[in-house]
Write a protein that binds this DNA or RNA. Sequence first.
DNA 1: AATATTCTGGACCTATTTGTCAAGAACTGT
DNA 2: ACAGTTCTTGACAAATAGGTCCAGAATATT
Lengths: 137, 137
Amino acid sequence: MLSTTSEYALRALIELANVEDGHMMFGKSLSERAGIPAGYLSKILAALGRAGIIDATRGMSGGYQLAKPAKDILLIDVIEVFEGVRSRPACILDKNRECDDEKPCPAHDRFQKTRQSYLKFLEETSIAAIAKRRTSH
Amino acid sequence: MLSTTSEYALRALIELANVEDGHMMFGKSLSERAGIPAGYLSKILAALGRAGIIDATRGMSGGYQLAKPAKDILLIDVIEVFEGVRSRPACILDKNRECDDEKPCPAHDRFQKTRQSYLKFLEETSIAAIAKRRTSH
DNA sequence: AATATTCTGGACCTATTTGTCAAGAACTGT
DNA sequence: ACAGTTCTTGACAAATAGGTCCAGAATATT
């Protein structure tokens, strides 16, 4: 469904959403808690940083934190960082094709409902919504 | 969503479903009509043959044909040939995890509806259902 | 039987994804 | 300023997916 990289990114952001406001989490802890190879995670976090989704600080009292409230980070925002235009579900028979009501592929009608459901999930679900601990009390 | 290989397989089977009953289609024609590299398609068709989904005959009047009625070939049957246990939509946060109502991941509830919709689509849609021309009249 | 045709299967190649590693930059506390 | 820490970046390695090619097996026609 999602690439391994996107799964990693979401899991890391969920961990960060569960950190107390104003506090940071080290890459090492994040890696252990989310079950992600530390070296690879550092590249994912760097990309999320460039995208303005998280902030990073170096040094002893550094670490990572969300750059904005978890409720303002949507799943689609995260996935787009890593999968670009392929983030939104496309034609089930050809991911490079435009497939809509005007130019439907033969499976368009049958797949439509699932596609809409998935698209809605990605576009309307925030990190806050899927993090266990609520950041706002 | 699907791997390129699975998309190719579905497109090829749709073409075969639209062939007149009892007739065969050459790999060359299939490759052109479905827009699939001929050399790669031959491996995909060989796998579908070993899985009992299509039959192949060599020689001048040979080619490929469905091994059973298109209505009896479900999308999940095709995809399983190439993606194995990863065919069914799994946990959105970890494709290697068991994620169900007993041991839900934090996103389980929100993703549930989409997951069920996609699973149903794969398990209840046949090649006949998405081939333009109906094979049974 | 010879020939032309088509599928089969293995070897091989290329691109992408995932993962590793280390040097260097940035930050903090002493 | 220095030492200790943490993030950043680029080079590189491993694994997987996608694709090419061709010798050989099977089939039908002559």
